[in-house]
Design a protein around this nucleic acid. Structure first.
Length: 233
DNA sequence: AAGACACGCAACCGCAATAAC
DNA sequence: CGTTATTGCGGTTGCGTGTCT
């Protein structure tokens, strides 16, 4: 029943990859392409499990990987995407060409988390630290309208609030005005017209959730369209 | 100089969704 | 249609390296 067993765990290497293993994996994928990770180790002469090969390729060996330091723009994009998507690293990575989910996840935990804390923001909720959980007004409208954005509570400008903190907040508000990123979400009553069929896609005109977020050619894509343009070949 | 500690990153683990039988 | 393998994802771990004392 079902399929034959995955990989023999008894005779597989673990830990850091050697240069020779890398070369074998690269050579094999160059000839045969990606996919079928289960049979790849045997075919490539590697004593690794397919899962390990896939991870090594995706996170380290792929030729289209950028590697190197993250730019300030990438930092801000990651922060914005994280505030909207949470720990959906693969979705965030889909918006950053040449970056992997693992890389972004590590970078978040080592750098950005600290960066947000230094700004006085909770890295998980993206809200100011020490903010009371209750009495939070959520609005997804334009920030210029009421000074509320992305679910962040509008704070009362008490005298206790330091001017440094105000400056920091103003700076952040300026940074959040990102014209190149349109990820505004809106909450509306249930649609009374034709419901959007996400899966399977029955109408060409409807964008799936991924495409509506601007995640071009995301693995999550169910409609093969992006910004109204067909990505089908 | 050397031990302790902190940090960054590659790799592993476990789980869930999906596909194959 | 139920069972099992495969794939992909997010959380976590462990090791190498840099910094501090």
């Amino acid at each position: 029943m079902g399929r034959s067993p995955c990989c023999e765990k008894a005779h597989t290497n673990k830990g850091a990859w050697t240069k020779e293993e890398d070369e074998r994996l690269i050579a094999h994928i160059r000839v045969h392409g990606e996919g079928c990770w289960r049979s790849l180790p045997k075919a490539a002469g590697l004593l690794r499990c397919g899962k390990s090969c896939r991870l090594r390729w995706i996170n380290y060996l792929r030729p289209d990987l950028k590697r190197g330091n993250f730019t300030e723009e990438e930092d801000e994009l990651i922060i914005k995407l994280h505030s909207l998507l949470g720990n959906k690293w693969s979705l965030i990575a889909a918006r950053l060409p040449g970056r992997t989910d693992n890389e972004i996840k590590n970078y978040w935990n080592t750098h950005i988390r600290r960066k947000l804390l230094s700004r006085g923001l909770d890295p998980t909720t993206h809200r100011p630290i020490n903010q009371r959980a209750s009495n939070i007004t959520i609005s997804f409208g334009r920030r210029e309208e009421k000074g509320v954005v992305l679910g962040h509570k509008e704070e009362s400008s008490s005298s206790e609030e330091s001017s440094a903190w105000q400056r920091q907040r103003q700076q952040r508000q300026q940074q959040l005005k990102c014209p190149d990123l349109n990820l505004e979400l809106c909450i509306a009553p249930p649609c009374q017209q034709e419901p959007v069929v996400m899966e399977p896609v029955k109408r060409k005109g409807n964008l799936c959730f991924s495409c509506s977020l601007g995640l071009q050619k995301s693995k999550e894509c169910r409609c093969n369209r992006f910004l109204g343009l067909s990505t089908e070949y």
